[in-house]
């Protein structure tokens, strides 16, 4: 009976959490226009969230592109299809790996930091103080971070893709001897600007939205103790990363599902 009650409590807690999350999104969207009125704040957050994640995104993109090229080559060469190496690398990156990995890296690096920052501001009464100074903390603190996150993820995704394609190019042509003209030509023949690159960008916007939403919500929902902040940070990384992966499947099915 105890286990049953625990399951019930756990489920109910989850539903409450989800409900707060939804209500929070509404309060945030109600004051989203502040992002334009305080654009300097968005720029500032874009610096903290975007520029700080830049380096790991570039390094990760390079290695992912290189390993894709290496693995792809050894599979394709069995069928005499190494001329399609460029296409394999480019499609894998623009459709899936770019948006997903950039969003996951952003969650781990910037998302957790922003959750902790907002949680700490809550724990040290900074949010309450703003409220007492007649400033809405959602408009002043949360919205700029959210908007910066939504903008940063697609930018990071694009950079990830480019670096990945170049990494794949290096391994494929310089190391493995695929003709460089063939590498580029196969990409250009097979990669569609709208179907592949465009859909990848749409994906990354969706991921940016969801991850940013989760990170600011968990920050504001933090129990204002040291333990609460650490729990909220962990939750941002876990829930954020899983949401990205789950949504990726749904979006892929919606975008490419119709094509035989």
């Amino acid at each position: 009976m105890n286990a049953l009650a625990a399951i019930g409590r756990f489920t109910l807690g989850g539903v409450y959490h989800l409900g707060r999350c939804g209500v929070f999104l509404c309060t945030m969207l109600a004051v989203i226009s502040h992002a334009w009125r305080r654009f300097a704040l968005v720029v500032r957050q874009l610096y903290f969230a975007g520029v700080m994640t830049l380096l790991i995104t570039l390094v990760a993109g390079l290695f992912v592109g290189m390993v894709l090229s290496l693995q792809g080559y050894y599979t394709l060469v069995n069928y005499g299809g190494e001329s399609a190496l460029g296409l394999l690398v480019a499609l894998s990156l623009t459709r899936e790996l770019g948006p997903v990995l950039a969003a996951v890296l952003f969650t781990g690096r910037a998302g957790s930091a922003i959750t902790a920052e907002i949680g700490l501001m809550k724990a040290t009464d900074q949010l309450a103080a703003m409220e007492m100074m007649a400033t809405d903390p959602v408009a002043r603190v949360v919205v700029p971070r959210f908007v910066a996150g939504v903008l940063a993820v697609p930018i990071l995704t694009l950079l990830f893709n480019v670096v990945g394609v170049l990494g794949g190019y290096y391994v494929g042509t310089v190391q493995l001897g695929v003709d460089s003209g063939v590498y580029w030509a196969s990409m250009q023949n097979g990669v569609d600007v709208f179907e592949d690159i465009g859909n990848g960008i749409i994906k990354s916007f969706v991921f940016g939205f969801v991850v940013s939403w989760i990170m600011v919500f968990e920050g504001c929902d933090t129990e204002p103790t040291a333990e609460g902040i650490s729990r909220a940070t962990t939750r941002t990384v876990v829930v954020g990363s899983l949401s990205v992966l789950g949504l990726d499947y749904i979006l892929t099915a919606l975008m490419y599902g119709g094509i035989s």
Binding site: V43, L46, Y47, G50, V51, L54, A90, T94, A152, P154, I155, L156, L158, L159, N161, V162, V165, W184, M187, Q188, N189, V191, D192, V193, D196, I197, I201
Partner: peptide
């Protein structure tokens, strides 16, 4: 730095559109 970031994003978009994809 944010300018560099945004510029990098735009250049990447151009690179992907014209070099990787085919307009």
């Amino acid at each position: 730095w944010v300018g560099v970031l945004v510029l990098g994003g735009l250049l990447s978009l151009g690179f992907l559109a014209f070099e990787v994809g085919n307009f």
